[in-house]
Nucleic acid binder design. Structure first.
Lengths: 221, 221
DNA sequence: TTGCAGATTAAGCAAAAATTAAGTTAGACT
DNA sequence: AGTCTAACTTAATTTTTGCTTAATCTGCAA
């Protein structure tokens, strides 16, 4: 995971950089607002730690500009001042979190982890009474294990990850089968069929719905 | 969006409930930990505001238990104490955010919005009490789902996108059916009919008007 | 009142999806 | 290596869905 630190005080920068590197994050740095913005947009950064007071461009403006381009990049403000008004301003500008100096490194670390939590660390996903465990490649219906093959598992995982969103056939073939050209056999149907059978999904318990002409969608009932 | 507030002090509860209802959130409440946990798991909640000190079960245990079942449900702690250690504990237990009492309502609101930011928006369109969600291919009338076929959905989407503008038959056939030559069967009429029926559009609730000799227009009343 | 545009309805039909079975491949075991 | 088995893919068949057509009905306007 790649973190960009934008901070002009060398002491704090070194402290952060060293601490986070020890936690196995990849670190990039910038010491003024303009440079920070540039790097945030150009590098493939996963999270930004952003000082409030910066040379060249205020932190809040950097934040706003990042948001214009990257809507999902988490931004955490580091601020010396602690006025409520500033906090609110920062959040409105698109920051995801806010931490007051002096802060404990441990707290910062936890807050950083929050933003990565959803990404990949969670190994179990659920859909209704179905639970899948990525780390063990196991599937359960009402706590009872059901044996799925690898493809079946991957397809189910994909649907659950995108719970509530329609998965088009094209996307499924691309993301689950990794086929990047026009492709149409009945593979998806066949797997969908066997998943439904194994998981006991009937017309009444329709956790996976077919969207005719489009694809499929997983949904709690 | 549905928020569950778990808080035992009546004053704070009322303050939160009222304030958030004014912002058009749907609110459920619980006054002790056990009840809070139960509701968090049973109701279709989108976010939890969780007090730290609670009767029956401490907030942090409620948090841990929610996390076991629902990995993606955002939890914000409300806490009177402000020790760093507690904050860290809360975050480790799976909370997504942490706000210290007394807090400004505005800050709380911003923090809540952060968690909804990525979610919906953009994909939903509305016309009166009708809402359509493109990402789910779903249609709601007064929050209750109505099943439309794909063509019906596309036609409705087209009308809502052009809300307030007249859609001529020619344009509809071109843009929705993708037919680029002179064409006249009753297809549009047939679909308009079934849409109106499914959405309960009567002469009185005429969200979609017929412009005789021209086409149709969608309009809030 | 008559004619025309639109609304309504029902039926035929074609496309999509579900299902089943058979063929193919890859990995495990002897 | 050869055989066996499990998993994946393809293909063929059946079922379902919903789009379209066409025929009829309704109501407004000349």
């Amino acid at each position: 995971m790649h973190i960009l630190i934008v901070e002009d005080e060398k002491g704090i920068m070194d402290f952060l950089k060293q601490g986070l590197e020890e936690e196995n994050f990849t670190i990039s740095t910038a010491t003024d607002g303009a440079e920070g913005l540039k790097k945030a947009l150009e590098l493939s950064v996963d999270l930004v730690l952003l000082d409030w007071m910066l040379p060249k461009m205020q932190g809040i403006d950097v934040c706003r500009n990042i948001r214009l381009e990257k809507q999902n990049l988490p931004i955490i403000f580091l601020t010396a001042k602690d006025t409520v008004q500033e906090t609110i301003e920062g959040l409105k500008a698109g920051a995801n979190d806010y931490i007051k100096k002096p802060f404990s490194f441990e707290e910062l670390l936890e807050r950083i982890k929050i933003h990565f939590r959803s990404k990949d660390e969670i190994t179990t996903l659920t859909l209704g009474n179905i639970t899948i465990d990525k780390s063990q490649y196991k599937t359960f219906v009402d706590q009872k294990e059901v044996i799925l093959t690898q493809r079946e598992f991957e397809l189910l995982e994909y649907l659950i990850k995108n719970k509530g969103k329609v998965c088009t056939r094209t996307h499924i073939i691309e993301d689950v089968w990794d086929i990047h050209f026009d492709y149409d056999t009945g593979v998806i149907d066949v797997f969908m069929n066997s998943i439904r059978k194994k998981l006991n999904l009937t017309k009444e318990r329709e956790l996976i719905k077919t969207i005719r002409g489009v694809g499929y969608i997983a949904n709690e009932i």
